[in-house]
Design a protein around this nucleic acid. Structure first.
Lengths: 211, 211
DNA sequence: TGACAAAGTAAACACTGTTTACATAATGAA
DNA sequence: TTCATTATGTAAACAGTGTTTACTTTGTCA
């Protein structure tokens, strides 16, 4: 337990401080409002110091989201306890939507901004990426439902993408357009429920003859 | 036909020149790539000159979109010739999606960025706003379908919002995430068709007994 | 011709993210 | 203890953004 450990702990503590300050600003005002100078001011360090802990702003915010998106992954995983695959699909949709509605700035960054470059990203880096995990989780459930002969279509990817797009549409529209006065918006929870019910209802196979 | 007219024509011509330069940059590289200096350089004027014709950058780009979105309104209006309201709903969805897929930068600005302030906007300004018109057009068609007893639900706003969200989800996800390598994306046209078919299928009333 | 208004400009302002060059302070070795 | 080294942090600057202030040029009309 020499001073090296202490210094490392201090370094880690400052890194956390930076992340906390950034998280506060980001959750409150969104990506653009998080300026390096504002973060620096909040933690009472010079702007340059941030660059000793993060490569650049994108790196910082991405780290921020990765951390917070653990909750996203956890929410999704909780639905695994639902046995029936069709009901689980519904549960995933609702959990996904709730997270988006409650974390609009995170959601916006992860699913509504231009894609971050995945070019230099090896397959190993996808592991643990909640975006990927959540997609894979939904895809697996859809495959399970297909295997149980519960779905009207057999293309698991197409079904998954349609379900994702539907719920994403409700949330994304809500985030971007909820203040438009020329739409009499129904409550977002109701819109989500309608979307999930209609999509799942339309994708599930009609009961077989003789049942 | 004095020189005043000529000057006004010249002024109008320069305004058009600015818009053309901005349109070129915007369509090619998106909102952030359109810098006032880049526009000025393209038309070989000083940056300040742009401000003699437009209040600020947002004003310019908004004007840009309003102009180009006439095509959007026209696309929507074309579907009016479809007599059957349910079929017309499908046609609107497909037309909407096609426009989004073919004009991703415009689409992103209009439907995926933070809401522009509608606060100071009177009702008269909504008229002619293609966003509003398209929504109203779809809403009207849904109401028509409800009146004809063709829909399973009776809440026209809720149905309209669900349809919009579904197609928006496909397009928005495509624009933001089409390069993600961990999704085996089906062609966007197929995803749109699936979305429209499933949604409409789920929202249309089952045939009455005895028919 | 001369007053006047419009059109256009250079330079600056305030704000970004980021970097260069420098100071400070803590550490391990002589 | 003293010194060199290394990590830590900073002030000032750079290059870019949208936008404005103060000024010059230009064209029009009396």
């Amino acid at each position: 337990m020499g001073p090296i450990n202490r210094r490392e702990r201090e370094k880690e503590a400052l890194r956390t401080q930076i992340l906390d300050a950034a998280r506060y600003l980001f959750a409150r005002d969104g990506y653009d409002a998080v300026t390096m100078r504002a973060i620096a001011e909040r933690i009472e360090y010079s702007p340059r110091t941030i660059y000793l802990h993060f490569q650049d702003k994108e790196d910082l915010v991405r780290e921020l989201c990765r951390h917070d998106f653990q909750a996203f992954g956890a929410d999704m995983a909780k639905t695994a306890k639902v046995k029936d695959p069709v009901e689980r699909i519904k549960a995933i949709g609702l959990a996904y939507a709730r997270f988006g509605a409650e974390n609009p700035n995170h959601y916006r960054l992860m699913f509504m901004s231009g894609a971050p470059d995945y070019e230099g990203m090896g397959e190993e880096e996808w592991k643990g990426n909640p975006e990927v995990d959540a997609y894979a989780f939904l895809l697996g459930t859809v495959q399970e439902a297909i295997a149980a002969d519960r779905m009207a279509l057999k293309d698991a990817e197409l079904i998954t993408q349609t379900l994702w797009a539907g719920v994403h549409g409700v949330i994304a529209l809500d985030i971007a357009k909820c203040n438009d006065p020329w739409v009499k918006w129904r409550p977002v929870s109701k819109r989500v429920k309608t979307m999930v019910d209609v999509l799942v209802g339309g994708l599930v196979a009609p009961p077989r003859k003789g049942r």
